[in-house]
Design a protein around this nucleic acid. Structure first.
Length: 199
DNA sequence: CATGCGATCCGCT
DNA sequence: GCGGATCGCATGC
């Protein structure tokens, strides 16, 4: 039984929220997919974040309440979807980088013009096409059960030891290991090695 | 007002 | 591996 996550769940900084989003389920109508890979983006303190230089019409959602979607267009053609973090209206968001298709796979494949199950949602731009997310969903309230897009918990816990590594494709703050992924997951946007040491 | 370039994907080489 | 597609914003004249 899948429960829509409450606002309180999102009321934490992006870096803290990011690993907790792993294994949660994003639903857009009949299309549902499990979160496999994310990246945290902060506020003024994070030079790689869209929020680093203050609010604009494009990134306004990052400066609003937590638990909303922040969807933006990149390179003129692709969309990227983020979960806005908290607390309150402090800027920050978690970029969704890869999902695993759970339901509505036919619709996803149609939207993307075919493709292997493992590739449908493997990448920030791809998952937006597969789930049918674009700028019109910017600001959508993920905690509203009657809204178009919701984030649910189907009882699968986040991994105790998520894979971590540097964020992809950025030019500033390249060293910060703010990318998180489910260990052993098939269908990541790019490979992510486990930490070299462990108990 | 002009320019540059970015949290990307795909097809061809 | 490389380049093309192509939008919105930030920056600098």
């Amino acid at each position: 039984m899948a429960l829509v996550l409450p606002l309180a769940f999102f009321e934490r900084p992006a870096l803290e929220l990011a690993p907790l989003l792993l294994n949660k389920v994003l639903a857009h109508g009949p299309r549902r997919a499990r979160i496999l890979e994310v990246e945290a983006y902060g506020g003024e303190d994070d030079p790689a974040s869209h929020a680093a230089r203050g609010p604009t019409p494009r990134n306004a959602s990052m400066f609003g309440p937590a638990g909303r979607l922040y969807v933006y267009r990149i390179y003129g053609l692709h969309h990227c979807a983020n979960v806005v973090s908290g607390p309150g209206a402090s800027p920050g968001a978690v970029l969704l980088r890869a999902l695993w298709p759970l339901a509505g796979v036919g619709a996803m494949r149609r939207a993307r013009g075919g493709g292997d199950e493992r590739v449908l949602c493997a990448g920030p731009g791809r998952l937006c096409v597969a789930l049918g997310l674009d700028r019109t969903h910017d600001g959508a309230d993920l905690t509203d059960p009657s809204g178009p897009v919701v984030l649910t918990d189907d009882g699968t816990s986040p991994p105790e030891r998520p894979l971590t590594g540097p964020r992809i494709g950025i030019t500033r703050a390249r060293d910060a290991p703010w990318r998180f992924a489910v260990p052993g997951a098939v269908g990541l946007s790019r490979p992510l090695a486990p930490l070299p040491s462990g108990p």
